[in-house]
Write a protein that binds this DNA or RNA. Sequence first.
RNA 1: GUGGCUGUAGCUCAGCGGUUAGAGUUCCGGAUUGUGACUCCGGAGGUCGUCGGUUCGAAUCCGAUCAGCCACCCCA
Length: 429
Amino acid sequence: MSAKIQAVRGMKDILPEQTPVWRYLEETVRGVLDAYGYWEIRLPIVESTELFKRSIGEVTDIVEKEMYTFQDGDESLTLRPEGTAGCVRAAIENGIIHNQVRKLWYQGPMFRHERPQKGRYRQFHQIGVEVFGLSGPDIDAELILLTARLWRQLGLLEHVQLQLNTLGSAEARSAYREKLVAYCRERFAELDEDSRRRLDSNPLRILDSKNPAMADLIQGAPQLLDHLDEPSREHFEQLTRLLEMGGVSYVINPRLVRGLDYYGRTVFEWVTDRLGAQGTVCAGGRYDGLVEHIGGRSTPAVGFAMGLERLVLLLTEGAVSRTELPLERYTPHAYFVAVGEAPERAALVLAERLRSSLPRLRLELNMGSGGFKAQIKRADKSGARFALVLGESELAEGQIGLKSLREEGDQRSFSEAELIDFLAGQIAS
RNA sequence: GUGGCUGUAGCUCAGCGGUUAGAGUUCCGGAUUGUGACUCCGGAGGUCGUCGGUUCGAAUCCGAUCAGCCACCCCA
């Protein structure tokens, strides 16, 4: 054997044993988005580096040290570290948000060069939703109601908590930031190393420090909620009222600050305590200034993204037991056992006819021969409910055997027509 | 970028200076000339992460390196 080549750090294979969970999750999300009238947009994975610098912010961790950037001729390109920037770029470039409302979603891999840990990988997958052209709290509420419905459908609602905050208008926030920075500079000696760094990069983050030595300083710090502009306060109050009417409970977390520069007003996160340190499963907020900032006409916008790895983890080991997931929809209904040369040939043809007659039938035909024992074993392992059996004697009698693999009962014998009827009934149920 | 823990069969792990490195599981075959999930038997499967050092002797001790996991930072 030659030297092994392994997957690059932080980039995980999603194995066949896992893909049914992924499909279940993705299909459920798509179903909910369809139900609310959102349209899919498919976006490139590579964008110009400048796009991310301008939208995410030059001094954020993402842009400073986490981007996969490479030179292509005289252009600097970057593997997208998040989806919003590309979506906004595409929306402007194609004129689809010019003076009109758009409700969009996208899906796919994102790349950040971070140290991997539980629920965090260098290539990870998100489904993102972005709405353009609506400035009221009603759309903020709809997005949150939509996610709440999704958690309910996935059986996750009782394992996640909605945290909510408002960052106010850009003006109010930057005024507040100055006050906070001034306060921190006054008590600079009390700041830990991380917070001194945050003072320049993201001062609002200081309030979210996990260091207990900082608790005192944080206690006495000025509060963003006390510095809100009136329209933002009104927006936030209406949003919370709508959520209450919609039956979604929330916790106001004044320390909730999204990491990306473009957020303002509403921000929210769905968090869980079941995934260790990476508890955020879905997060988003309003970014009314971004479209203009990237070169479009001033357009209000709001959106969120959910991390699929984290949701899959939550589904498989965090909250729902794996046996509760409806994964049988991804295993074959029936596994076709055919022993002997003539039966094998006949089975290949018969399997094709069955698939033609029953388009929704999932039928796996045994390949690679093998005795009855081996083939029945494979049938069992495939997860199929039934084994179809064709040996020399069935072939001679023009019958097909049907053996239930999931419950007791004798093997039955069907003609082809009877078998189609029977399977049709099984598929329907 | 920083810290802690861990690298032995495809997977989960035992062995922690002394024959030819083990178990469970998985896979294949048999017990049962044509029938799975339980049982029994057999077979296949290992450069003990890599490189170097100590030693008569290293999976075992030491160093370096690489990788994985978890946490910090940050984030979905």
